[in-house]
Design a protein around this nucleic acid. Structure first.
Length: 293
DNA sequence: CACTTGACCTGTCCGC
DNA sequence: TGCGGACAGGTCAAGT
């Protein structure tokens, strides 16, 4: 589910809603969603205040006054939904929400605060997780050691993108964009969207893409990610923000989930195929396949 | 090494 | 209406 824009939207929402609140109780129903010992909760989370909510790549961090943090990965279907006291919306509430009253059958972790507000971690497919760990140890996680630059910082120059992409110069560009060690935060939606923007076929080996086109691709990545953040992310199936609201990027999508529809640039019919083991959308008119393919 | 496949899970959709 | 299979936005481990 969530890629950089969705996780960033959740982060911004939680930052407004949670900072300063004090944790009073934590419950969970699935050990893999929250693999900590109960004593960790007692010692490092109960009575702690939320100091900050951060994001790196697709990972969220909720920092606590105990110098511990919740490190959270939403994977495909994770949601973090906040409910203030006495505002547990029922199904059908006209608030642009996909979620009804909580907890529901997908709720894995429940964090309650001293003002009776609650944060629900829901995850239909149980791939996601919440881990409580010392804040300073987060950067020591293997994922954090390997992960590439944040695409929405000025560090992410055309030159850096080209250098890191060329580490996998013989690989197809789609799998390189999905490789979190090349750059952080791009997933299946924004890989397809940015490749369309740069008029590059997803199967093209990096080595066969000109410097000029790689520079365009870098700009398209930045463009689609920022546009999606402005739209509150993409809700294809499950994604909602911290208030349970859907994002609207999908109505701006040019190729993703638009198979069978005309390309907004050239009018050819968008094709869905499989590249790098993932469903992949592209326009056969303006994204020409590599010659030897 | 680099790439592909399978695993982790549940739910939905499609064809028979 | 039921059943089997394919598929879904992510990542990691194992296999080729």
């Amino acid at each position: 589910m969530p890629e950089l824009p969705e996780v960033e939207t959740v982060r911004a929402g939680l930052s407004k809603l949670l900072v300063g609140k004090t944790i009073t109780e934590i419950n969970f129903d699935w050990a893999k969603s929250f693999p900590n010992a109960p004593s960790d909760v007692d010692n490092f989370a109960l009575h702690a205040k939320v100091t900050q909510v951060r994001r790196r790549a697709k990972v969220l961090m909720i920092d606590l006054s105990t110098d511990y943090s919740f490190v959270i990965h939403l994977k495909m279907t994770g949601q973090l939904v906040f409910r203030s006291a006495n505002k547990n919306f029922g199904a059908g509430h006209p608030n642009n929400s996909l979620v009804g009253s909580l907890p529901d059958k997908s709720t894995r972790v429940i964090i309650e605060f001293s003002d009776s507000s609650t944060l629900f971690f829901n995850d239909q497919r149980k791939f996601g997780w919440v881990k409580l760990m010392p804040t300073t140890q987060i950067v020591e996680l293997d994922f954090f050691k390997r992960v590439g630059p944040e695409p929405l910082t000025k560090e992410f120059t055309s030159k850096l993108f080209r250098q890191r992409a060329m580490r996998r110069k013989n690989s197809n560009i789609k799998s390189v964009l999905l490789d979190q060690s090349v750059l952080a935060g791009v997933g299946n939606i924004y890989a397809d969207e940015s490749l369309w923007g740069a008029k590059i076929h997803p199967s093209t080996p990096v080595i066969d893409i000109s410097t000029r086109k790689l520079n365009v691709l870098r700009d398209e990545i930045v463009y689609v990610l920022q546009l999606s953040i402005d739209k509150g992310g993409s809700t294809d199936k499950n994604y909602v923000d911290a208030e349970g609201k859907k994002g609207s990027y999908m109505s701006f999508s040019r190729v993703f989930r638009r198979e069978g529809l005309p390309c907004p640039r050239c009018g050819r019919i968008i094709i869905k195929t499989r590249v790098a083991g993932r469903g992949t959308h592209y326009c056969p008119g303006c994204q020409k396949p590599p010659k030897n393919n």
